[in-house]
Structure formats: C-alpha cells, structure tokens
Design a protein around this nucleic acid. Structure first.
Lengths: 306, 306
DNA sequence: AAATCGCACAACCACGGGTTGTGTACTAAG
DNA sequence: CTTAGTACACAACCCGTGGTTGTGCGATTT
C-alpha cells in the first residue's frame, strides 16, 4: 500500500523507489504483486511514468485510508503522546455516552476507550500511566483513593426498568422499587467482584428484589430479544442508554421511583498526568455534568456522590 | 492484524491457529512479532488462554478498523458487486457537492469517486462498465451520445467571481461579464482539451475576457492564498462550492450578472447498467435538481441544458 | 539513427515466516 | 503430592517471498 501510494504521489516507479529506499525493480515487483492479488491493473505504464487507471483511482482513497488507520493503530500504543485513554465501567453505561459526546465536541482529540475489571485495576492503571482517566463509582472515605489520584463526581445514571410488551408492568407509567419485589430481574454479564455486582447486591439486600445475574453476556441484541419475548422477565437499563433494536419489539422503558436507583459516575485521574486531552475532558465533563437531584434517589451506601 | 483479532475473538492462540489454518506456533510467532514491532505487550498469557492487556484493548478497535478498511479497499476493485463508481468533472465542482449530499442521504451505498480526463474517456468508461455514471456537460445533438447511454440534466452550476480584499471589484455587490473585460482572471489547473478548457475558451471568445489558465494546480490552498494576496487577480468559483480557508483572508464572492455564467451538469449512465445504487442515485438527483432558471444565464453554445 | 528514459524480466540470494518437535508453567483431578 | 492435561514459547529446519543486480524492450527526444 505504501508503495502504491508512493508511486501515485511521485508519478514514477523509480522516484517512488528512491522515496522508499529500495530499487526500482522492487517497486515494479510490489505493484505487479498487488495488481495480481487484486486481479486488476492499477497503473498504465507510459514513457513518462505511471498513471492511475480508473480502478487505481477508485482504489487510491482506500489505500490512503488504510495507511492513516495503520498509523493511528501504532499511535494508540505508542508511549509518549498517545491518544487519551479512558476506562469506562461498561459499554452501555452513561460513561460511554459521555465519551461519545466528548468525541463529538472534540473530534480532534484522539481517544481510546478500554474496560478494566474493577476500580482496583483502574486505580493501578491510572497510577502506572497505562490509562489517563477512569469512570467509576468512588467508594466512601473508608477506602480512600491514593493521594496522587484526584476524582470528581460527574453524573448520576438513572436506572429504568426495561420490559417486553407482554410483561405485567408493561403498561405502568412508573413503578416503585417495592413493587418490583417478586419480579424476576435479569442482568446477564454482571461479573462477580465488579462494582456492578456490588451495586446490585446492595439493591437486592435493601429492597428484596430478585436479580438473576447468571448466564453469560451474549450482547445487547440477545438481551433485548429475550426481554421482548419473555413476559416474566425485565432488566435495568440506564435512562440515557440509546439502543438500536429491531422495530416491532415493543420494548417499554418504565421509570422507577420511591426511590429512583442511580449509579454515580466519577472521573478519576492522576493529578500529575500531563496529557493535554485530559484537561479538555475534565472541562467538558464539568459543563456536561447532570443528575436527577438528590430528592428520592438511591445509591449504594459505599458510594460517594459529589 | 488478522491473527491478533482472531486471538482476541477466540481467546486462545490455538483456536485462532485453527481458524487461520496455521499452527499454534505460527500464531505465537506472529503475535510475538507484532508485540516486538509495537514494543508493547498485547496479551497476558494465562493457563486458560490469552487475555488482552490495556494496550491490547486500546489497539483492538484500530486493528478491526484496519481489517474493515482493507476489505473495502479490495471491494473497491472487485468486479461484480463493487461500490458505485461515479466520475466527476472536478473536485471543486457542484458534482462533487452533489455526490457528498448523496452520500449523506444514503450512507449505506458504497461509493467511489474518480475523475476522468474528458467526456470521451467518460463515455468509453461507461460503455465498458469501468464506471457506473459520470457528471459531464453534454454536447449538442451535433455530437450525439452513443445509443446505449442515457443522460439527464441535473444542475446548472452558477459561477461567481472570487477576489481578495484589495481587488478593485472587492466592494461590488455584483458585476456584469462585460465589466470583467481587461481584468485578469486566473484559473490554474485547467487542462487543455477538457470541457473546462472549452468552456472558458467560449467565455473568452464571447465576452473578451482575459483568462489565464497557465500554471500547474497547487491545490485550493495555494489558489486562495494567491487570490487573497494579489489585488489584480480574481478567479471563478461555483456558487455552492464550500471551501475552508484560513480566517482573515477576506476573500469576497461576487455574483456575476448579465448574463450569469453557469456550467450545466448532466448525469450519464449506461441504460442497461444493473448496479442497484445507480437507480438510487438517479432518484436522489431528480429530487435535488435545481438551477437558477433560464433568465439571464449563459452557457456555451455546444452544451445542452435540460 | 542514436541517446535517453522508464518499466519489466531473469537470475540470484538472504531472510522472514512457516513447519515439526520439544520444553515449561500453570491448573485440575485423584 | 503426584499426575495428567492444557496452553504458550523456544529450537531447529526449510521453503518461498521479496529483496538485489544485470539486462532487455518500447517509447520519446535530439
């Protein structure tokens, strides 16, 4: 690809060869090999050099794009000035949505999103510099963060009930947590030991819900399919989570009240992290911070808010 | 990259090896080589298989993207169901804008844009099936199109004068073509023998303008820089052409009247071309067709409109 | 007609990247 | 604790990809 683009840019095989510090014959072989693999002619050879064929013209932007992507791929693991690397607690969480919003607002800031196991791993990664920031629920002062790590509350993610059209509660305008007692709540993909597990453990203990965290996570599609088809099953989902599901599933979002369960997201970062994107992210989040207010909400006792 | 993604998807070196029909040792070597090139560890090796490191997680989406791009690159020259391939007359022409609009309206339709030398080349490429459609100015019945090629008028591109802030006409609300007599109009990159050359030849012959088509085309940036800094120089530019230029250049767009020069764009395609995207493109353009109306406009005598 | 330019082909060679065979670390079972 | 099994790494080997130099051919220029 690099050779192909070099020939396009220089217009001559031998100039491209000089650019690449190889022989003209090597360029000829590379192009011939590429043309053989693709089974099309990319250049018309003239006495003045090489001109793109129509196929070559169509191929060129894809070749350039490939080189760009390859460069970004290398940059993503390059120590030094690599992209801002942020850990989110789950791909469907509000943290993911916030990062998408940040990317829309600052597309010039290269971004990589990763998912670590729990806050222990996140704190270790932040300390080592392997990641630049992390969205997590911060524990109460009982287990304080290391001194060099700062954190700031960002958003309370309001949880809603998601049911299929045939669920008993499908028609309800809202439900209370107490009303959910006895109903089966299904949360596949909750890994024991993570904050989500701790969160729902607390929720179960306090309100006597029946939450089934069993079963592997086959992805959003499988979850939504099952919820839509099973009248006895419901699940929790963030209010802002935007899902695409096939039309006609008839899924219902039902607000939960008295109290409304929320998941408090904070941003964690190392105070002396010099990454320029980090300050921009903090500023962006400060402006985007929002929550339902303190009235009538519930969060686990171990989690700090604000 | 393929091996890296295969290991991620299967979770085990040997399963990836089976998928790729190579030995487990080959996978081990490939991953080791990739890790050596990138100078980072991508996997933590456990007794159960391989798990991604943080660097690996950051790298993964780029790797997947690279494979996607590579696939599209191959598809762009694959005979059979390749992307819709459309020839435009120039990258700054209204045709390019129309194709961008089409892509926004139908992002699901894969698209490749090429630029052929002139309408002869375009007609030949359409007949051979090398391209699916072409934006061109269609000549009068004197030189009719081949029988198997259809064409339909799409849009009249209105030309405006573009000047720097210190140009004599910079303050004018509009100018007539007659007023431009004696002024230097600079159109770099106009290649002799193309329709653009014929167009401006006619314009010069009819209104006695001074158009300098000399000099190589160093791109929009160089053109705009020169226009902005040279009081005696102006150029023509499509009314809808959206350019990004550095702030403070103070470039002025000035409508031209009595008459308004327009470039008539038609779409050409082979009647029996079965590409599904072609019908969508024609429908889209039929809805998007627009022009200034017939009153007070000028187009070369050889060009048909409607 | 001769010189020049630009790419392709031929012959050759080195090394990258595959193979098989074996070793080591960790896990699970008895 | 031993033993068997699993999973990846290392070693030795070898073929073929992909580089080199040398040369040929067609087109353009003088």
């Amino acid at each position: 690809m690099r050779t192909f683009v070099a020939v396009v840019d220089t217009g001559r095989f031998q100039d491209a060869a000089a650019d690449l510090s190889i022989s003209q014959q090597a360029v000829s072989k590379r192009i011939a090999g590429l043309e053989k693999d693709l089974a099309v002619r990319l250049f018309t050879r003239t006495a003045h050099g090489a001109r793109l064929t129509i196929d070559g013209q169509a191929f060129l932007p894809h070749a350039r794009e490939l080189l760009r992507v390859a460069e970004r791929a290398v940059a993503s693991v390059l120590p030094g000035s690599r992209p801002l690397r942020v850990d989110v607690i789950a791909s469907r969480s509000a943290a993911s949505g916030l990062m998408r919003g940040f990317h829309r607002a600052h597309p010039e800031i290269e971004l990589d999103v990763v998912m670590l196991f729990d806050i222990e791993a996140a704190v270790a990664a932040i300390r080592s510099g392997a990641i630049d920031a992390s969205f997590r629920a911060v524990a109460v002062p009982g287990r304080p963060l290391p001194e060099e790590i700062d954190s700031v509350w960002v958003q309370d993610e309001v949880l809603q009930l998601l049911t299929g059209p045939d669920h008993v509660l499908a028609g309800a305008r809202s439900v209370t947590l107490a009303q959910l007692t006895g109903h089966r709540i299904w949360m596949p993909g909750i890994v024991p030991g993570t904050e989500w597990a701790a969160y729902y453990d607390d929720l179960v203990a306090e309100f006597g819900l029946t939450i089934e965290a069993t079963g592997p996570n086959f992805g959003s599609d499988a979850l939504l399919d099952t919820i839509a088809d099973t009248p006895a099953l419901a699940t929790f989902m963030g209010k802002q989570t935007r899902l695409v599901w096939p039309a006609g599933h008839g899924l219902r979002r039902i607000p939960v009240t008295d109290p409304t369960p929320v998941y408090p997201h904070s941003l964690l970062w190392r105070r002396d992290n010099p990454h320029p994107g980090l300050a921009v992210l903090r500023d962006h989040l400060a402006a985007a911070s929002a929550g339902p207010g303190d009235a009538g909400i519930w969060a686990p006792g171990w989690a700090t808010r604000r």
